Simulated scan of single mutants.
Amino acid sequence: MMNKFGLMTSPLSNPSVLPWRSVKEIASSPVLIVAPHPDDETLGCGGAIALLRSLNCHVQVLVISDGTLSHPRSRKYPADTLRSLREAETLSALKLLGVEVNHVTFWRMQDGSISTQYQSVVVSCRAYITEVAPQIIFLPWRDDPHADHRGTWKLIHAVLDGLRLSPRLIEYPIWDWDSEQRGSLPASLEVTIWRLNISTVLELKQQAIAAYRSQITDLIDDDPEGFRLSAEMLANFTHPWEVYIEENR
């Protein structure tokens, strides 16, 4: 449905009508999962990761920022300590999903800077992606309300510009699940939006999400303005399906 501004209503407002796809329809190898922050890969793609690994697809994960702005005023967890904690959580979560430590790369860009600083890492990131040579790249939805997510999308597209690689690009929503932040789709953007059935690995995904104690519990209790994913927000990532968006080519 289109509104008076020429924008399409977000399909996330009624995801139950989206068509289904099975993992075998997308399975290819190697696969690269790109996350703006430590946890986005599990929230947005945890089910896909587990399913792809169950089919013995090679999965690499690239985490762009260090995630240290989640609790900027904590004295118990200053930036270096928080970075180490969040990386450890990521490794624990991904191990549950079937990804080994040596297949996870942390880029450690300053949290909150991706949208303005991504050009500084294009060359090195291009070398990384050339080495991985992914057949599929999962990356954040280009119009995600969070600037770091939009910046990550821009980074990957800047990296791919000029490369001979032409991987399948599958975008995943994160903050569009929040109805107060959710945007609309430009009518000019032709995309296919579908659901991946993750029912067989849902319990694994839930266990992986639980590994992110710094983001979903009061583990860090000395920053009154610290970030914490609400139960309402988390519920969007524990359905027996995940939603993905692909631009029609």
Rank of each mutant, 00 (worst) to 15 (best):
I193P: 01
V23M: 10
T130Y: 00
P72G: 08
P30H: 04
G44W: 01
L169H: 09
E225A: 14
A147C: 03
E225C: 15
S179G: 03
V201T: 01
P145A: 11
P19E: 03
E242W: 07
G226I: 00
S120Y: 06
D222N: 03
S166I: 04
S166H: 08
S65F: 05
L85W: 07
V23I: 14
I174L: 14
T9I: 02
I193R: 00
V243K: 04
R168M: 06
I49W: 03
H37A: 03
K95C: 10
C57M: 12
T192S: 05
Q60I: 01
W241S: 01
C57K: 13
F138G: 02
R108S: 07
N3F: 02
M233F: 15
V34S: 05
D111I: 01
F237L: 14
S199M: 08
A187F: 02
A127I: 02
S115C: 12
E171P: 13
I137M: 01
R126F: 07
G6I: 08
S22G: 11
L85E: 06
A35I: 05
S28T: 07
T105Y: 04
I216A: 09
P173W: 00
I26H: 12
F106L: 11
E232L: 15
P173N: 11
P167H: 06
S92G: 10
T200E: 15
D111W: 06
G47C: 15
L97I: 06
E203W: 13
E87S: 04
S184A: 05
W175T: 06
V159L: 00
A147H: 04
